[in-house]
């Protein structure tokens, strides 16, 4: 009952109210309230995530598992940043409420928390994703093979997009008049047309397929047919 029936009821009720809120304007407010609760829970989930990280790393350190020193670094970074943020250490006073320290701006670069964002978090996340440029290049060199017509289409399109969306288009095909009958052969025009018509057709069909899949999965969850998230005991 506590572990299966009530959760099933909660799922059905929450999902049902939101669908009902769509069809009946009188229940729009119910939908807002339920969604607002979920948004609040999303914030609680961040705390859960932080707590989880804390426990996992503490466990790693206490059992001296391999890489425990890195777990210690993670833990220190977590605790220090959290203290700067949650305790608003060194927060810049709020110009509207200068007499209320807890209303201070902790995100300003002049506050320790904002400083951590500016000089630690921001360069780290940005560079982590910048690394992908190298791996995409390496993967392209190793894996893109014109083995058959499908692969040639894929490669050809990638070429048109890569060249058509830079000045290379002008260098290679700029001599073709943009107004003339062969304008479609210009690389920039080809890139636009491929995106607007051919690729959009493919993506749209994929989207419609996914939409059907999501709708079906949502209904299965709301109606209690899919119960995979429940506790098995």
């Amino acid at each position: 009952m506590l572990k299966r029936t009530i959760p099933l009821f909660i799922t059905g009720a929450a999902g049902g109210i939101l669908i009902l809120a769509y069809f009946s304007p009188a229940t729009t407010n119910w939908g807002e309230v339920v969604t607002d609760w979920m948004n609040t829970l999303a914030a609680v989930a961040f705390i859960l995530g932080g707590g989880n990280l804390l426990f996992v790393n503490l466990e790693k350190i206490s059992s001296k598992r391999s890489g425990w020193a890195y777990a210690l670094v993670t833990l220190l970074a977590f605790v220090v940043t959290l203290a700067f943020g949650v305790l608003k250490i060194g927060a810049v006073p709020n110009a509207q409420f200068p007499a209320t320290p807890w209303a201070g701006d902790y995100e300003s670069v002049r506050a320790p928390f904002g400083w951590v964002y500016e000089y630690v978090l921001s360069p780290l996340t940005a560079t982590m994703f910048a690394l992908l440029a190298f791996y995409v290049a390496s993967a392209a060199f190793r894996a893109f093979r014109a083995k058959n017509i499908e692969a040639i289409l894929l490669l050809g399109t990638a070429f048109v997009i890569l060249l058509g969306r830079t000045a290379a288009a002008g260098i290679l095909t700029g001599w073709i008049s943009p107004e003339g009958p062969f304008a479609f052969l210009r690389l920039d025009t080809m890139a636009v047309n491929i995106m607007q018509y051919v690729s959009t057709a493919g993506t749209r069909a994929v989207m419609m397929g996914i939409a059907l899949g999501i709708a079906a999965t949502s209904l299965r969850l709301i109606l209690g047919i899919d119960r995979s998230y429940l506790v098995n005991d």
Binding site: A45, F46, L53, L76, T81, Y106, V120
Partner: peptide, 25 residues
Amino acid sequence: ESILVGVSAAYWMTLGYWATLVPNL
């Protein structure tokens, strides 16, 4: 990488706390 994991988790947690939990709950 370890620093990134720790800092980003704390960042999300702080934002969740000050931007949503305090004013909305």
